[in-house]
Structure formats: C-alpha cells, structure tokens
Computed example of a mutant assay.
Amino acid sequence: MKKNTALFNILITFMLLSTCTLSFAEDSAPESEVAGDSTAIQNTTSEDNNSVDKVYIIPTPQASRISALENSLKIRRLTHQINILEANEEPFLTLYQPSLTSSTQGCTIILHSDNEHPDWPDAVAPLRNSLPKHSWCTISIEVPDITKRAEPVSTLIETKEESGPQILELPNQEMVFARIIATMNKAQNDGVEKFTFLGYKTGAAYALNFLANNQTTAEALMLIDIETPSTITNYNLAQQIRKVPQPILDYYVNSNAGSNQFATWRKQAANQRTEAIGDFIQLDSVPDRVTGKKSKQLLVQRVRGFLKQNTSQIDQRKTLPSVKKGLFYESP
C-alpha cells in the first residue's frame, strides 16, 4: 500500500512539473519574441558599426608635416617667408628668402628630399638661410612625397645599362616640374633674372632631370648627396648629367661601394658631355667631416665657393665714400 502511495505521489509530482514547464514556456513566448526583436536591433547596430569601421581615415603625413612647418615658422615669427603658389590647379608651399645684400646675384631654387619639407634641418635649412647673406635669394619648394605611408617600398628596379642618354621620368615628375616652372615665373615677375638649382637627395634627382630637360633655365646645378628613387636605376639617373652643359657641383657622401659606383657613373657621364660650358666638380664630403669641423658650415662654404667661381658675378665692389678732411685734419 505504501509502495502504491509513493508511486502515486511521484506521478502527481511529475505531472505538476510538466504543467509548470509548459506554462513557463507559454508565458515566456512573448518575451522570446521581444528578445528576438532586440537581437535584430543589435544586429542592425552591429552592421551600422561595421559600416562605420569601413570608413577609414587616410593618413596625410605630408599635409601634417607642412602644417607643423607652418606652425613652427609662426612661432619663430617667420610667416613672411611663406608663399603659397599654384601649379596644375594645386596649391603648394614655398619659402622665400631675399638677398640680404645690396646686390642680388640671382635666386637658388631648392628641392628637398622625400618625406621632408622645405626647411629640413639636415642641408636645406642651412643653405636656404645662409646663401642670402652672400647675395643669393633662395626659394625652397614643397616636393610631393614619393614613398607614401603604409605603402610597400619596391626593391625591384631595372638593371639595363643603356649606352646613351635615355628618356627618364621620376615619380611625380610632372607635378614637380610644374611647381618649379610656377616658382620661376613668380620670381621672374618679381625681377629675378638668374637662377641656379640645388637639390638634396631625391630632390637632387629632380633638379638634375629638370635641367637635363630644360637646359636654358639655370646657370648652375648643385647636387647634394644625390639619391635615386627606387623606380629607376643609379646608372640611368647618372646618364642625365650628359645632357647638362652647365657647371655642376656633385657633393656626396661616399659611404659604401654602391655610392662609390654611383659617383663613378656620374663622373663618367660628365666626362662624356660634348657641349659643356662649365666644370663638373665632384667632392666626397667624408674628408670634410673627419676634420672635426661642422659639416653644415663646410657644406655652405662649398656651395658658396662653387657659385662664386662658376656663375656670372655682379661686380659688388662699391666706390669709397668721399672723405671729409675735417674728420681727420684740423682746419687751417
């Protein structure tokens, strides 16, 4: 009897639990539907977030670099040097320094290296600030970046070594050439009659190639530690020197076998010029540096001396002022 009673109680308990479970499920159905709506909202939000994530902010390192330069010049109260010009409907920054003497020899157009700016401290700033003291105005031009941020650097270059000068095009060449021409036009409108070109590293490659293709635009060319963009070969760039008849200063750092070979190719190309109207002067900067003197000061001296000896100079000697004898002698 007790066993039957216990079995009956278990059966009743099981039926009650089943009824409760069914009732909970039924009562929870609307909540489940609501939960389903909430999930849909979350999914929509998630999709919206994904769409937001896909709007990437493209870094603009050159714009940031130029903005920082402008702020630096503002702090130093040098904003009067900034001159915004336009080439191919695109503005670009230049820094102008007038000659600080009574007689102006001409203007040196300066091109900085890749991922730098027109007042870069290594070589550009010392030269653009020092040459005006020696009768040369300077205009330093913003050069667009060759290597973009997060862009893989190509190490594959052509290895052909042609026997003669070739048509060579550098990255952003059309833009850089247009900026050089716009700068020269502005300077000519301001009364400048004579130009020289000075380039630093990849800026020197642009200066060389511009003068090779526009042979009557400048009196002299200065290559400061010239560097070849990765899209071309050192040999092909060196051959452009054959097209430049003007005096050339090739001041470079002989740091390894590659730079020495590149320098040899430039020297050979200079020797092959058939219509040279000036010397090719190649100087290794390493001996200058081991003297213990400041390399930037020596660089300025090299460039200044080259310009003085290889460009037509305006006679700057002034007549002596008339002397009043009363300042030195007693009146009779």
Rank of each mutant, 00 (worst) to 15 (best):
Q246V: 09
W265A: 07
L249F: 09
Q240N: 08
A257Q: 05
I241Y: 03
Q246F: 01
T264Q: 07
Q246Y: 02
V253S: 13
G258D: 15
P247R: 02
Q239S: 07
A238F: 05
V244N: 02
N236G: 15
N254I: 04
Q246K: 14
Q240P: 05
D250G: 07
Y252E: 07
Y252V: 11
Q240H: 04
W265F: 09
F262N: 06
N236E: 15
Q246P: 01
L237H: 02
N260L: 15
N256H: 04
Q246D: 01
Y251D: 05
P245F: 08
N260C: 13
N260A: 15
K243R: 10
L237N: 06
Q240W: 02
A263M: 10
N254H: 06
S255E: 01
Q246G: 07
Y235K: 12
Q246I: 04
S255I: 02
L237M: 12
F262E: 03
Y235P: 09
R242P: 05
F262G: 03
Y251E: 02
S259N: 13
Q246H: 10
R242Q: 13
V244H: 04
Q240M: 09
N256R: 03
Q240F: 01
P247I: 00
G258I: 15
F262I: 09
L249W: 09
S255T: 07
L249V: 01
N236K: 15
N254T: 02
F262P: 04
Q261Y: 06
W265P: 04
F262L: 08
Y235V: 03
A263H: 09
A238T: 13
Q246S: 11
Q261W: 08
Q239N: 05
L237W: 01
F262H: 04
Y252P: 13
W265L: 08
V253H: 07
A257H: 04
L249N: 06
Y252A: 12
N254R: 07
Y251M: 08
Q239W: 00
A238L: 06
Y235A: 10
G258W: 14
W265S: 09
R266C: 13
R266S: 11
Q261E: 12
G258T: 14
K243F: 01
S259I: 15
T264D: 07
Q261I: 13
V244Q: 05
Q261M: 11
V253R: 13
V244L: 06
L237E: 08
N236S: 15
K243L: 11
S259K: 13
Q240E: 09
D250H: 15
Y235N: 05
V253P: 13
A238S: 15
V244S: 03
N256W: 04
N254D: 09
N256L: 07
A263I: 13
V253F: 08
S255Y: 00
Q246M: 09
I248R: 07
S255P: 00
